[in-house]
Simulated assay, not measured.
Amino acid sequence: MSHLSRTLPIKRAAHVYLVHEGQLLLVEERMDDGSIFYGLPGGKAHAGETLGDAAVRQVLVETGLHVTDLMFVSLIEGELLTGTRNECYANFGRFTASFSGDLAPTDPEVVGVKWVPFGQVEALVRYGPPPEVEERNPLIWVPTRDFVRGQPRAYYPI
């Protein structure tokens, strides 16, 4: 049997757990089907951009907050969305950070920013269609669940 190799596009992204008095900052985004999705502030890294720089840039546009002193928490890595048009190799960093400023998102996709008590974070997670939306993949939320429970791991293979 011959070995068939394939090359997957790599998606690199960084998200930040911003914590204040037992609450986690989540952004509210409107999905294509009109529903509201809650997620961590952060997003895709540009070509040549470090995950840390992507985290700082994305948090600023999505929340208005300036983050400093990034501390690594977790890396999520592996093949994501296999069999869909968005199949990719994911390399997602999760950080905590200090922050300053006022909540004032400028990203047009963000419809709100909300401090959510740790105990209520998991209730906001929605899984399911459409399958190409990677943020609705349960594997993406496992590290957040562990973080709010005080049990983050450093590495999450997908």
Rank of each mutant, 00 (worst) to 15 (best):
P157D: 11
N91C: 13
A90T: 00
L24C: 04
A104F: 00
S98D: 13
P9E: 15
G39W: 00
D69E: 06
T106K: 09
L51D: 00
V148L: 04
V19N: 02
L8D: 15
T50E: 01
E79R: 10
S5T: 09
A97M: 04
N91E: 07
K114E: 02
V125P: 00
A123H: 12
L40M: 11
E49N: 11
R6L: 09
K114L: 02
T106G: 10
L65P: 12
Y38Q: 15
G112Q: 06
V116E: 01
T96E: 13
S35Q: 15
L40I: 01
V110Y: 03
P131L: 12
L8R: 08
P130S: 15
E62M: 12
E134I: 13
T106Y: 04
K11A: 05
E29Y: 00
F37M: 13
I36P: 03
L65T: 07
A123N: 08
V67L: 08
E87T: 13
I10P: 03
I36W: 02
E109N: 11
R94Y: 12
G78M: 06
V61C: 03
M71C: 14
F92W: 02
D107W: 12
G112T: 06
D53A: 07
G112L: 07
G48C: 06
K44T: 06
E87A: 10
A97C: 13
I10D: 06
H66G: 09
Q120G: 04
G48F: 02
T50P: 00
A90Q: 01
E79G: 12
T82Q: 10
D33M: 09
T50C: 02
M1H: 08
P129G: 05
A97G: 07
E79F: 09
G64D: 08
S100Q: 15
P152D: 05
P130D: 12
H20R: 13
M31Q: 05
R6K: 12
Y17F: 11
L70T: 01
S98Q: 14
